[in-house]
Design a binder for these strands. Sequence first.
DNA 1: GTGGTCTAGACCACG
DNA 2: GTGGTCTAGACCACA
Lengths: 130, 130, 130, 130
Amino acid sequence: MILQIDTQDALPIYAQLRDQIVLGIAGGRLEQGEALPSVRRLGADLGINFHTVSKAYTALHDEGYIVMDRRRGAVVARRTAGGADFLSKLGRNITLSAAEAVCHNMGGDEFMAFCAECYRNVNGEKGDSS
Amino acid sequence: MILQIDTQDALPIYAQLRDQIVLGIAGGRLEQGEALPSVRRLGADLGINFHTVSKAYTALHDEGYIVMDRRRGAVVARRTAGGADFLSKLGRNITLSAAEAVCHNMGGDEFMAFCAECYRNVNGEKGDSS
Amino acid sequence: MILQIDTQDALPIYAQLRDQIVLGIAGGRLEQGEALPSVRRLGADLGINFHTVSKAYTALHDEGYIVMDRRRGAVVARRTAGGADFLSKLGRNITLSAAEAVCHNMGGDEFMAFCAECYRNVNGEKGDSS
Amino acid sequence: MILQIDTQDALPIYAQLRDQIVLGIAGGRLEQGEALPSVRRLGADLGINFHTVSKAYTALHDEGYIVMDRRRGAVVARRTAGGADFLSKLGRNITLSAAEAVCHNMGGDEFMAFCAECYRNVNGEKGDSS
DNA sequence: GTGGTCTAGACCACG
DNA sequence: GTGGTCTAGACCACA
């Protein structure tokens, strides 16, 4: 799986990494139990400091997306249902997106179609290697 | 309309203000043409620096949610369809949320129901002016 | 409140700081709502890097002992009852200590007296400034 | 006696082994004079490197929980009263736990009841040999 | 002023 | 080999 970072983006590099790895897990490009590259290796591949990769991994670990195995490094974790915290955060994000959509004259049907397309874009990648 | 800020939130105060004003516009609590409080007034009301309010207003202006009127200050803008930039940003946000949902074993139906509820929470707050 | 660190200790410096601040909060030397020194200030006072202090503060924040206020820096948080995670961790720690005590011929009464003394040492400091 | 290790735990594997063996001795599952498995045997059984087991045994030896017999390997040692070092370490651990309990609104009675339960969990596992 | 991010390099613990 | 810790110094965002 290829990761792309943009040092000009307002989003910190570690957050970009975190987001792309979440997308990779959801899309099936990273499978449960699969080991991620070591922090030093990924840092070298991306041309960034390994501490930055480590911060991304730590965030992913704290959110339950990966586990740190003492022998294998970072490993994609088993999927578990989200707790109240997760649903609350998800609700805030989507509610805000919905509000932005409403402000841009997007109707309910249009918004739902948009969400459905986004969901397909994530989940439909399963099995694909691109 | 009452704004609530939390100085302990990870989200910067100016972003909290920006988000709540967007939610207010979408929910109809702030109507098109309505003037927002002056940055000094709102800052004093919320107990924060007016520079912070100014930063929020600038962000809202840059995104087209408000216009700056020389005499009336910040005024809620007319709604316009979002451009490619807006759709791109919206797509990134919702796709990421969808990926997080997938990683937490949320199925497509469940995710769509969740999105629909979020949309209703935003839009249902309007009396029936839509 | 004076903090002491020992760079020869096996326990990492940031963990020593974390522990001493927890002791300070429990003993009343740090009161709810009180602001901690800035990471740079405390680092300079202790002769250590501010990143190390930052790591201690981050750990304390993640455990709910302090909150990061955008305007005041690190602030001692309101006390809340511990969740299942906390009780589980506490149980593991004390059970292990009890096992070590048993292995050293410490009887139940002796162990309980020892725990009571430790508790008094923590809580009895309230009001004292030493 | 069955040992369980978790390679994803924050605690190093050798420390997990050390802790579980201490719990086993305190609980009577390992009796004085009983021989522990060889480092290679236990390593193979647990699927870990024998150097890791060796490190755990070394720690247990240094703390006086086991003795090294040239012919029988590691043997559970006779129980002896703890010295000043042991009491100091025990005091630090329990005092810190007490402080964490205080910070989570656990009162003295509640803390003592919790400690008593932990002690029973350890010692009650013995048949009735105490 | 505050904390957050990123870089860079050293040393250590673990397995 | 792996990640964790600590140091040091730069730049930026926030208030």
